[in-house]
């Protein structure tokens, strides 16, 4: 596998995505809304009774932080399903497959193209979120809550892993099914387990402390490898070329 070749594909896809604003907007919108919404909620809730008590703040803040695992699991879907199924819809897959490039290089290129904007939007959202939250909670807590180890693990480990898993699911879905909508719907299911973890954390089945986060990261890393194997094994150029309508 030659990374340079994948990068050529990724660069082309990124160019198309940037020109095709609608896809880009859907990627940027979600992290932006959440990152502004949560600080607003903190600011507004319990305003009359003097705001949220300082003791509750860390609980809330660490729960909110987990959204930066859920976001990168959701936002690669429009790009990944657009870039893979899009090649087929535009009929551009046939000439592409006629060039000296391997399946792995194509898939990696497509994955990079979905990964970069997703992670960039997640990080940008997280930066806004942390700055707003710190400035709103500093007076009560007496210290800057962010950055902290939990958020570090989330942003540096869990978020990239979640984005990767989501992209792999999309790749698998779009090379198995024959139309765009089914592919993106299947791909979108990826965020459900993360919402599950979040809910489990909220209702106290697990605590989302750094240890738990590291365990989740390890499980995700193992899944990334399994899905990578499945995605390269299921991408069969002949089938995609001849069965997709």
């Amino acid at each position: 596998m030659r990374l340079r070749k994948s990068w050529i594909i990724a660069a082309k896809d990124l160019k198309v995505i940037i020109r095709k604003r609608t896809v880009l907007y859907t990627v940027v919108m979600l992290p932006l809304i959440i990152s502004i919404l949560f600080p607003v909620v903190i600011e507004l809730s319990g305003q009359k009774s003097g705001g949220i008590p300082a003791a509750y703040l860390p609980v809330l803040l660490s729960a909110f932080a987990f959204f930066y695992v859920i976001i990168p699991a959701i936002i690669p879907t429009p790009i990944a399903s657009y870039s893979i199924v899009g090649e087929k819809v535009e009929k551009s897959l046939e000439p592409l497959l006629a060039t000296p490039i391997t399946d792995g290089e194509i898939l990696l290129g497509k994955s990079i193209a979905a990964f970069i904007p997703s992670i960039a939007a997640t990080y940008a959202g997280a930066a806004i979120f942390m700055v707003l939250m710190d400035s709103l909670t500093y007076s009560k807590l007496g210290y800057l809550y962010y950055p902290n180890w939990g958020m570090g693990i989330i942003l540096l480990l869990l978020a990239p892993l979640a984005a990767t898993l989501s992209i792999e699911m999309n790749v698998i879905a779009s090379s198995r099914v024959s139309d765009v909508r089914t592919a993106s719907q299947l791909g979108a299911l990826m965020f459900i387990p993360f919402v599950g973890i979040y809910v489990a954390g909220e209702i106290g089945i697990i605590t989302l402390d750094t240890n738990t986060l590291l365990i989740i990261a390890a499980i995700m890393a193992a899944l990334v490898l399994v899905l990578f194997y499945i995605s390269t094994a299921t991408f069969r150029r002949e089938e995609i070329l001849t069965k997709w309508k």
Binding site: K12, K15, V16, R19, K20, E90, S92, E94, P95, A98
Partner: peptide, 16 residues
């Protein structure tokens, strides 16, 4: 590497 193909559906990138 040594062939070029013009398929029956041209398959250009419309956005480029």
């Amino acid at each position: 590497k040594i062939i070029g193909l013009v398929p029956d559906n041209v398959g250009l990138y419309d956005g480029l």
